[in-house]
Design a protein around this nucleic acid. Structure first.
Length: 106
DNA sequence: ATGGAGGCGCACA
DNA sequence: CTGTGCGCCTCCA
């Protein structure tokens, strides 16, 4: 699916130590208002994928819960290991860590 | 074709 | 802070 491919290409551009929101990824990929599809695309990834799925969070800077227990803890672990800081309310300081891509395409 | 169900987002209360 | 409702667009049974 071209939609998924664009989403993956965009997620791959998120630098280490930064996060992006679902809606942001959708818009950058050229599919505004497709935030939920980003979630679909990421959930379709295999465990061995090299795509930094863990750098995608919701618009509030929280890790979206996804049924499987422990998976959100794992995501948080990955983010913290690359320097992303969480506040008390298990939220990320987006002012500080939100990815602000340059306009030029990689 | 059709109806639920999503790793969402935003506006309110 | 939590909860609810609605719009959004695909996926899948």
């Amino acid at each position: 699916s071209p939609l998924y491919q664009c989403i993956y290409k965009t997620v791959e551009r998120i630098p280490e130590g930064c996060v992006a929101t679902y809606g942001q990824i959708a818009a950058l990929a050229g599919y505004p208002r497709h935030a939920r599809q980003v979630g679909y695309a990421l959930s379709a990834l295999g465990n061995d994928s090299q795509i930094p799925w863990h750098r995608v969070v919701n618009a509030r800077g929280e890790i979206s819960p996804r049924g499987l227990s422990g998976s959100d803890d794992y995501q948080r672990l990955l983010l913290e290991s690359e320097g992303v800081e969480f506040g008390l309310g298990r939220r990320i300081n987006l002012q500080r860590h939100l990815w602000q891509p340059d306009d030029h395409v990689n």
